[in-house]
Write a protein that binds this DNA or RNA. Sequence first.
DNA 1: TTGATTTGGTACCGATCGGTAACATATAGG
DNA 2: CCTATATGTTACCGATCGGTACCAAATCAA
Lengths: 203, 203
Amino acid sequence: MTPRFSPVPAEPLTPVPVMPPRERILAAASDLFYRQGIRAVGVDAIAETAGTNKMTLYRHFESKDVLVAEYLRRLAGKSEVFWAHIQREHPDSPRKQLGSWLEAAGRDANDPQGRGCALANAAVELAEKDHPARRVIEEHKRASRDRLAKLCADAGLKQPEMLADELFLLLEGARVCAQSIGADSPCCRFVRMGEAIIASHEK
Amino acid sequence: MTPRFSPVPAEPLTPVPVMPPRERILAAASDLFYRQGIRAVGVDAIAETAGTNKMTLYRHFESKDVLVAEYLRRLAGKSEVFWAHIQREHPDSPRKQLGSWLEAAGRDANDPQGRGCALANAAVELAEKDHPARRVIEEHKRASRDRLAKLCADAGLKQPEMLADELFLLLEGARVCAQSIGADSPCCRFVRMGEAIIASHEK
DNA sequence: TTGATTTGGTACCGATCGGTAACATATAGG
DNA sequence: CCTATATGTTACCGATCGGTACCAAATCAA
């Protein structure tokens, strides 16, 4: 059944200017890398999901590895935004900031769709210690832990460095635990544990 | 330079009966999977490392996925042996058993060659929720946490269930943190943190 | 010694991997 | 309008992936 008339020019699905290819690729990569794992996702799949092709992908990212690094860098950036947010939320109460952090972390660790921390997962998947992503991962993790330590100190809690380490590892553990044990796992009690640990550092 | 004489028959490198192929394959897979990651290692590499070939590998394991599952099952078995060990070490002092656990966990989390918990890493790498390895992982993690809870209860500590969750997540966190942050990371202080948390549950 | 079972070796399968060449098309700026 | 730049399309590269067919050599039990 061949068309007898020239087809009506199809209107673009989104009349507003669509995201530029680079952003679409990054968005597609974010989704696929996080949900399926970095090594499990090929560049073809990313290009297709982004509604483009492999050539355009390689015009914007010189290799899959630097795409991975950029994917993680963006996530680290969102984390910065989050820290700024809780600071703006309670400008003069480090204690409440810590509460916000704990609550958000708990939400994050208990997200049924979640697959833990993308940065930590990447560190597990990318064993090569010279992978371009590793710098991003280490810097982000170190910065997160240090921010937390500053918060604990500002909140006037006892042994703030140790408290920060405890809370940091508790969260890292909860996020990886959510992937190994499914439902009804220790990470369901994350917030309560965090509160108990904080309480044990009260003066 | 062609050989002028027929070569002396090479003696086997190990005169004693060598490990059977199945064990060699499992040993090779353990080493490679743990150090490089499961998805990063192909069956060819495993067979070659095991000093055999792909055909023999597939005669003993119907697929790479069941080889992975068996690799993890063995590790879970070694964990059972460890629990039996610390129980035999201090038969009538749950408190000392907990001390042994903490010390061993600390050694494990701070091993510079280590790459964290192989079971947890596998959970991160194998996102497919119907992968044969996932049952092994979940059962092992759940059993570990429950053993720890029993130990905390027997040791007569306050809120043993919560304490077990805290220590469990602390260890999970330390092992994943060792991979993301390199040296000088919170997991260096793992044992001290564990002791502090235990102390906060003292009656 | 015979016969059955277990290995090793090699070549191969289709699929996919990361990455590129070449060319056509669209878009935008002057 | 012309030109430069960004994007789309297609086909391809060599390498590797997980998995198998086939046969020879070794091993072992009877």
